[in-house]
Design a protein around this nucleic acid. Structure first.
Lengths: 208, 208
DNA sequence: GTCTATATGCGGATAGAC
DNA sequence: GTCTATCCGCATATAGAC
């Protein structure tokens, strides 16, 4: 089970992109990090765009897999887990949303796919809110449900970027639970009485 | 009252930065847009960083001026107006938050000032929520107030970036009112009964 | 103040030897 | 597959004439 050079390139570039940003990491730097020559890197990936595209594709796969599990959401703790998993995936590929403006400008094709991804996330979030509503956990009109879904996607998409704006944070250490907690707070006013126990447990955990 | 070349440079660069992103606009492009030579531009601003710094400073000034008016917030429509003004200011200098990752990496000094700005915005938002609470418009514990303030700042800071991720949007035409409406929705569950009339009016306006 | 011309460096990408 | 060497283009910034 040899780790191929190609795999090592993807692994190293993901780490560097996440740490320093897509724009700041040149193909030369990735090669230097691995101790190989720039020419060798370009043998495995003819262009930087190809490298980024493979990473982006993996991100899409992971998100799709998560969206597939939506129909099993019936209670608050299911929702909590789903959010948690989503934040972990986004954190794993955080360079994508963090440098989205640059990515979309540099690689228009990926920009379009990112928009499609957002549309998909929006549908998934709407389905999720609908599930909670059907289970009686959540009380929301259809308009409110639409807004809540939008807020959820907005938060999952942009929260990591926002964290870096805050003093004292450098974005390297992120608690997906904290992010999920803030998202949960959005819908908490609409949670029916019997599900509040779990909410209170989470509150005490993250407000302490 | 002659418009100096220096002023024209600042004006043109702001427009280009907002339209295409800080990273995508070179000093050459700004010069070309104005029909002057790159050398001339560098006579007025020795470095690109100086140009950006002046624009950033103006942004800081505008935000500070807005934060100074917080103490007059006593009702929902005051809050609405304050949000509206803030979104307009952020939209006017939207290149700053939209390309923040790049800006902070390229100009660390401005990155630090942006963090300080966020900290200031957070304090202003907390004061604002406290005002609404004191006026009896809003019912929230101190913990909840902290979370609401965070959500408000998060939304004002990142909403414009998020809009660009959405299919069909290119970020050129933005309705500050819509953004303010979404922010207002965040706190609507905690608004006391007598202030709901204004909320309902806004709802009908933006959900139509 | 404004121009032309140029220095310098970096990032992406290619050619061809090994 | 991996290397060295190199090309190309772009962006920041400077020098010096007008």
């Amino acid at each position: 089970m040899a780790t191929t050079t190609r795999d090592r390139i993807l692994q190293a570039s993901l780490a560097l992109f996440n740490a320093d940003g897509l724009a700041a990491v040149s193909t030369h730097k990735v090669a230097a990090e691995l101790g190989i020559s720039p020419g060798n890197l370009h043998y495995h990936f003819k262009t930087k765009e190809q490298m980024v595209t493979v990473l982006f594709w993996r991100f899409e796969q992971k998100l799709e897999a998560l969206a597939g599990g939506v129909e099993r959401i019936a209670a608050v703790d299911d929702f909590w887990l789903a959010l948690h998993l989503q934040f972990e995936t986004i954190a794993e590929y955080r360079f994508i949303y963090r440098d989205m403006a640059f990515l979309a400008r540099e690689y228009p094709e990926l920009g379009r796919r990112a928009q499609a991804l957002t549309a998909g996330n929006l549908l998934a979030a709407q389905a999720l809110v609908a599930q909670l509503s059907a289970s009686g956990v959540l009380q929301a009109s259809s308009e409110l449900a639409r807004i809540l879904a939008l807020q959820i996607v907005f938060t999952t998409t942009c929260w990591l970027s926002f964290e870096r704006f805050m003093p004292g944070r450098d974005g390297r250490d992120t608690d997906p639970g904290l992010a999920a907690f803030y998202t949960l707070t959005l819908i908490s006013p609409y949670i029916s009485g019997e599900s509040r126990a779990y909410l209170d447990y989470l509150k005490s955990k993250y407000l302490g």
